[in-house]
């Protein structure tokens, strides 16, 4: 198993372990299936890894994308699927801060294209956009990779928590209007978990 496979295996474990928590968050403001859907998709990813052989990191990420698209069921399938598919297209074999920024931008572009959401709509983008912005600022300032990843993790966590007072503009939560205030967005939470796992595995 190569390093990228190991990272996605850890992400799968994290999501599966947090199935109930994500579903609880989604039950408060949505249709209550986010944890179930994500766990279903990532269980399938783990199974795919058992039999598949990959000749590159981007092939691993592409496999994850296609597996999520085919198995999740809710909006998180096409959203994360598109995000990882876009990431696989720009991913280089050796990790660098420059490439991490490029991957982050491709992820944001993919999610915006699929979900037509913006920052502040109480979605996964509220965790991802600040995280990528932190990477970008550090790259431009010449900060080392490890420190940049720490900053990225902090920004993702703050971004996730920033969704609590927001009124949802997208997805099922938007049907609740003002009543969606006071709840952390499940999509931003799963995005934070994915970012957290990737960064902790790299550092």
């Amino acid at each position: 198993m190569n390093k990228t496979e190991e990272v996605f295996n850890k992400i799968a474990d994290k999501i599966i372990d947090n199935k109930q928590y994500l579903t609880k968050l989604d039950s408060a403001i949505g249709d209550g299936d986010h944890g179930i859907n994500m766990a279903r998709g990532f269980s399938e990813v783990k199974e795919e890894f058992e039999s598949a052989e990959f000749d590159s990191n981007s092939a691993v990420v592409k496999k994850v994308a296609m597996t999520l698209i085919s198995n999740v069921g809710g909006a998180s399938g096409p959203l994360y699927g598109t995000a990882f598919l876009q990431a696989s297209k720009v991913m280089e074999e050796d990790l660098s801060l420059k490439n991490a920024v490029k991957i982050g931008e491709a992820v944001i572009e993919g999610i915006k294209m699929r979900g037509k959401a913006e920052q502040g709509d109480k979605t996964m983008l509220d965790a991802i956009i600040p995280a990528v912005n932190a990477l970008k600022e550090d790259y431009e300032a010449g900060v080392e990779l490890e420190e940049a990843l720490q900053d990225c993790l902090e920004a993702a966590e703050e971004g996730k928590e920033s969704t609590i007072p927001l009124v949802a503009k997208k997805g099922r939560a938007s049907y609740l209007g003002e009543r969606s205030k006071g709840h952390q967005d499940p999509g931003a939470t799963s995005s934070y978990m994915i970012i957290e796992t990737i960064i902790k595995e790299i550092i």
């Binding site: 299936d33 859907n37 698209i69 085919s70 999740v72 069921g73 809710g74």
Partner: peptide, 12 residues
């Protein structure tokens, strides 16, 4: 619905 019978949609 999904291929395993849950509520949801499947692009395939």
């Amino acid at each position: 619905g999904t291929k395993d019978g849950r509520l949801g949609t499947d692009s395939n």
